[in-house]
Amino acid sequence: MLFPHLAHLSIAKLQRVSGALTNAVFFVTLTNNQRYVLRVYGSGCDQLLDRDNELLWLARLTPLKIGAKLLGTFDNGRFEEYLPSTTLTHACLRDPTTSVQIATLLAQLHSIVQVHPPTQSSPLHTNPALEIWPQIRKWYSLLQNNSSSSPSSLSSGKAVAGITWDEIEAYQRFLDRVQSPIVFAHNDLQYGNILRMKSTGDLVAVDFEYAGYNPRGYDLANHMIEWQYNYHGEHPALASPQHAPRRHQQISFVKAYLANHHLKSTTTVDQLLYEIDCWSVVCHLCWGLWGLIQLHQSEIDFDYAAYSAQRLTMFQQALQRIRNKSNITTPSK
């Protein structure tokens, strides 16, 4: 029994939280009015996530008072602390004050790398500490029905959604030349994973399933892309380009981030925006592959087919834009 001291109580209310795309999330209220968060892992999540890595980070974050405290785990889920708060909405992202708060929150999360640094500090895509490239390699391999995860065997296999492994590796090599410090990244900071505390108004990030070491450009790009998604709207699986942050909104966000970042570097606003633009390509690829896997295994009511198709189209469009801007050689197919 996870909580023997609560054995004399029963569940008074079980409320499912909408908008979760990997797990089923519930608020559990007991008869003494205590509340907890229950996460039930989605079908096939072990192919998408490294639960051991997630629990390791939750153990590291709890002493730092980051996010919700982990209370207990079971075979296919866990209980977390309930934080008296309200979840941000899609509209909140466009609020100038809230956007600055989110930029500050990301800067604070990224600074955790100073407390828990990776074992290797090389920014190259071969760095085993990074989450993104091994993750993409694993998902690409799964979609090829290929049990091997070595790049050499992947390059000789069939393309996934018209994307070859050679194309991905060519872009990896290009990104090796784009300076982007390795940070502790949330990697999924959409509005549903940000809470506003009722007592203080402070913002708190939750749901660190995909968290780990990544280039800061990736994490910042991922959040900016999330401006286009309203998971509680009429078409939750589709991006709305008209909601993408405008130039002045990007500048305001980046300025707030740089003002609070632990690295007091000479990085300019334009340099960081270029860094973000370059890494946005990888965000589209990552979540496009994720959507294809979820399409075949998830039981959550979400149009993964439409989501993945659009994300992979956005990947190709963003890739072509960066190629044109940066003179990247296109691999022959």
Rank of each mutant, 00 (worst) to 15 (best):
R35V: 11
C283G: 14
I163A: 07
K138I: 13
P236E: 02
L154F: 09
Q310I: 10
P128I: 02
H116I: 11
L292N: 00
H232Q: 09
L130E: 07
H186Q: 15
S141N: 07
G162W: 12
N324E: 02
V113T: 13
T329K: 05
M1Q: 14
N327C: 05
V282G: 06
Q250D: 05
F302P: 00
D207K: 03
F79W: 15
D176Y: 03
L30I: 06
H235Q: 12
T119Q: 15
N324F: 03
L142M: 04
S121D: 13
V281L: 08
H284A: 11
K138N: 13
S43Y: 08
M224E: 06
H262M: 12
D75E: 13
Q297W: 04
Q172S: 13
T330W: 06
D277F: 12
D176V: 04
G233D: 05
W165C: 01
V178M: 03
T86V: 13
D75A: 08
A185I: 11
S18G: 02
K158N: 05
Q320Y: 14
R51N: 11
V206I: 12
N146H: 03
L295V: 04
V183Y: 00
N193E: 07
Y140M: 07
L83T: 10
L48V: 01
L258R: 06
I168D: 00
T98H: 11
D188R: 06
D50A: 12
L30D: 03
L175H: 01
G192V: 02
K13T: 04
R51E: 11
P123F: 00
L48K: 00
D75V: 09
R173F: 13
S148K: 09
I328G: 03
L14C: 02
A211N: 08
I300R: 02
N145M: 09
Q47C: 04
K255S: 03
E54H: 09
Y210C: 05
V115G: 15
S298Y: 02
I300M: 02
P181W: 01
I225W: 04
Y171S: 08
R321E: 10
N324H: 04
T97R: 10
I225H: 11
N260D: 13
L154S: 05
I300Q: 01
L312Q: 01
K333A: 13
K325V: 06
K138Y: 12
Q179K: 01
I66R: 00
E209K: 06
L175T: 02
H5N: 15
Q242A: 14
L142W: 01
R137W: 12
R137M: 14
I66A: 00
Y218M: 08
G44N: 00
A59L: 09
K69L: 02
S150K: 14
L14E: 08
H248V: 07
S43I: 07
Q101I: 14
S280Q: 12
H261I: 01
Q47M: 06
L14G: 01
A211G: 11
L71W: 05
Y274S: 11
T73E: 07
L238N: 07
D50I: 11
P117F: 15
W165G: 00
H223Q: 14
S265M: 04
H296I: 05
Q101M: 13
N76S: 04
C45H: 00
I163Q: 03
E299I: 07
L142S: 02
S99M: 12
T89Q: 10
T119E: 15
A12S: 13
A68N: 12
H8Y: 15
S155E: 12
H90Y: 15
P84T: 08
R39D: 03
S43W: 03
L142G: 00
R94G: 15
G42P: 01
